[in-house]
Design a protein around this nucleic acid. Structure first.
Lengths: 126, 126
DNA sequence: GTATTGTTCTAGTTGAAGTAGAACAAGTGG
DNA sequence: CCACTTGTTCTACTTCAACTAGAACAATAC
């Protein structure tokens, strides 16, 4: 399990951490049912404040990816997914954007616009 | 030309405005060579500060989408693109993500990760 | 020349993010 | 039962980017 964070990034620390966990869940490096390090522990090893870690954990819980309970810690509730199709679609998108000379910011804007115009499907297992 | 901004959005105002212009360029509602409203004018109609508008303009210039000059204003330097393939790829991605029950935040994270791992192609005309 | 418009500067406010420490409650494990 | 762990909640403070505000300035248009 490789959870990392870059203090220099413009993206907030808790968001980076959450993204790191999401990625781990997706690619299977963090398995369903697995327990994440305790907030205090992870805060220590990443040199973050406990509250920052907890904020990431709570964001993940709101997405239905994590189960948080006192005394027990943070347990993954979402299964790994088959990413083959998503990865393929993603590659196709990056390729098409590159061909059309569309920059990173523009592409992110496009994705966001499409996402917000669509009904947001709740994440996690049924 | 529909440039809008939502003060309630978590996304910064200047970034929203920049995204709005990028979208307009892409779909052709803002043509190559067209002149955007002056910063003061746009600030007035969007109820923003002049500096906020200028910040958006300057971001777009750094992306090679805009040409800024005193007295003349902001002129689009980037041509409209053929978005057919990009849109198709984007739809495919959204579909695949939805099928895999991947949420908006996770998808954005994925796209970002893919973008930063790839060489960022400079935007705009050659 | 005059008006327009981006550029640059100083200065202040606001709010989210992050840090810090403490007390508390629910669960674990002996 | 008891000690320990761990998330929850609370207050308080710092920091920094975003935003606002106003002014002076420089290049361009007409």
């Amino acid at each position: 399990m490789f959870l990392t964070v870059d203090p220099q990034s413009p993206i907030t620390l808790y968001e980076q951490l959450a993204a790191s966990v999401r990625a781990g869940i997706l690619d299977g490096s963090i398995a369903h049912g697995e327990r994440l390090p305790s907030a205090r522990e992870l805060a220590g090893s990443l040199d973050l404040n406990v509250h920052t870690v907890l904020r990431a954990y709570q964001a993940l819980r709101e997405e239905g990816l994590l189960d948080l309970r006192r005394g027990r810690g943070a347990v993954i509730t979402a299964p790994s997914r088959d990413l083959a199709e998503v990865t393929a679609a993603l590659d196709a998108l990056i390729g098409a954007a590159s061909a059309a000379r569309i920059g990173p910011d523009t592409l992110i804007s496009l994705v966001r616009a499409r996402l917000s115009s669509t009904q947001t499907t709740q994440e996690g297992p049924r």
